[in-house]
Amino acid sequence: MLEGKVKWFNSEKGFGFIEVEGQDDVFVHFSAIQGEGFKTLEEGQAVSAEIVEGNRGPQAANVTKEA
């Protein structure tokens, strides 16, 4: 698991990027966000996630919002 913060997230398109210190930004799709209801993230929000290899490079999986 790694910790980072949301760089930006487009709720209409359902994707965005997470900033991780010392690494390239990581793509995040709404389907990777854990929880019930409408899955979205806010800019600057702290999150933790796993990194997996997607079709277009590294992407976030099992994204959870930090308190």
Rank of each mutant, 00 (worst) to 15 (best):
V47C: 04
F38R: 06
F27A: 00
A60S: 03
V47G: 03
I51M: 09
S48V: 13
N62P: 02
K39M: 07
T64Q: 13
V47L: 03
E50H: 13
E42H: 14
F9L: 03
M1N: 09
E50Q: 14
D24P: 15
I33G: 04
F17Q: 01
E19K: 11
V63S: 03
K5R: 12
W8S: 00
A46K: 15
L2K: 12
E12K: 14
G4M: 06
L2Q: 09
V26N: 00
Q45K: 04
G44Y: 04
V26G: 00
V28W: 02
I51L: 10
V28T: 02
G54C: 10
Q59T: 08
G14T: 02
K65F: 11
G4K: 00
I33N: 03
Q23W: 14
L41M: 05
Q34G: 08
W8L: 00
I33R: 00
K39N: 07
F9D: 03
R56I: 07
K13C: 10
G57M: 04
T40Y: 12
V26R: 00
I33K: 00
D24W: 09
Q23M: 15
P58A: 08
V28M: 04
T64Y: 12
V26H: 01
E3C: 15
V47W: 00
A67R: 12
K65H: 08
A60E: 02
G37R: 01
G35D: 09
G37I: 04
Q34A: 12
N62L: 10
Q34N: 14
S48F: 14
K39R: 11
V63C: 04
D24H: 11
D24E: 13
G14S: 02
V26I: 12
F38W: 13
E53V: 14
A32M: 06
S11E: 09
K5S: 06
G4N: 00
F27Y: 07
F9Q: 03
W8F: 07
T40W: 12
W8V: 00
N55A: 14
G44M: 04
V26S: 01
D24I: 12
F30C: 10
G54E: 04
G37D: 06
D25W: 09
H29Y: 06
N10Q: 05
S11I: 10
G22I: 03
N10D: 12
W8D: 02
G37C: 10
N55S: 14
R56G: 09
A46D: 08
G54Q: 05
N10W: 08
S48E: 07
I18H: 00
G16H: 01
G37Q: 04
K13Y: 08
N62A: 09
D24Q: 13
N55R: 15
A32L: 01
F17S: 01
S48K: 15
D25C: 12
S31N: 07
G57C: 07
Q34D: 09
K39I: 07
V20M: 09
V20C: 07
M1Q: 11
E21S: 10
F15C: 05
K39E: 04
E3W: 13
K5I: 13
G57D: 03
S11Q: 13
H29C: 09
R56T: 07
F15Q: 02
A32F: 03
E43S: 14
Q34W: 09
E53M: 15
G57N: 04
V47R: 01
E19M: 13
E36K: 11
V28Q: 02
I51H: 03
A60R: 01
G4I: 03
A61H: 11
V6T: 03
A60C: 06
S48M: 15
G44L: 04
E53K: 13
E66S: 15
H29Q: 02
G57L: 05
K13F: 09
L2F: 14
P58T: 09
F15T: 00
A67G: 12
G54P: 02
Q23T: 08
G16K: 00
E21T: 11
L41Q: 01
F38Y: 12
G4F: 04
V6Y: 00
E53T: 13
F15H: 05
N62H: 10
E42V: 14
S11G: 09
K39P: 06
E12C: 15
P58C: 09
L41K: 00
E36V: 11
F30K: 09
A67M: 12
E19P: 01
V63Y: 00
A61D: 07
E66F: 13
F17H: 01
K65P: 11
H29W: 06
T40A: 07
F38D: 07
G57S: 06
G4V: 03
E21A: 12
K39T: 05
D24V: 12
V20G: 02
G4W: 04
G16R: 00
M1F: 13
I51W: 06
V52N: 05
P58I: 10
S11V: 12
A32H: 07
N62Q: 09
S31D: 08
G22S: 05
K5N: 06
K39V: 08
V6L: 02
D24K: 14
F30H: 10
K13A: 08
S31G: 08
A61T: 10
V47I: 08
L2W: 10
G35S: 09
E12R: 12
N55E: 13
V52H: 09
V63M: 02
G22A: 05
N62M: 11
L2V: 15
G22N: 08
A49M: 15
F9P: 03
A49T: 12
F17N: 00
F15Y: 14
N10T: 04
K65Q: 08
E19T: 13
E50C: 15
A49C: 15
K13L: 11
L41T: 00
F38I: 07
D25I: 07
S48N: 10
V6G: 02
L41I: 05
G54N: 06
V26A: 03
D24M: 12
F38C: 11
F15P: 01
T64W: 13
D25P: 08
E53N: 13
K7M: 01
I18A: 01
E19I: 11
K39F: 06
I33L: 07
E19D: 06
V6H: 01
P58E: 04
A49S: 06
G14Y: 03
A49H: 09
K65I: 15
N10R: 02
V63T: 02
E66L: 15
I51F: 06
G22Y: 05
N62V: 11
A49F: 15
E43V: 15
D25S: 06
I33Q: 03
K5T: 10
G16W: 02
F38E: 07
V26C: 08
M1I: 13
G4C: 07
G37F: 06
K65A: 11
K5C: 13
F15E: 02
K65C: 10
D24T: 10
I18M: 04
K5L: 09
F38G: 05
A67W: 11
M1W: 13
A60I: 03
K7F: 01
A60D: 02
W8A: 00
V52K: 09
K39D: 04
G37K: 03
G44W: 04
E43C: 15
G22M: 05
V6M: 03
N62S: 10
M1T: 12
V52L: 08
D24Y: 11
G54S: 10
F38Q: 06
S48W: 15
V63H: 02
N10P: 03
S11F: 10
E12Y: 11
Q45V: 09
Q23H: 14
G54H: 07
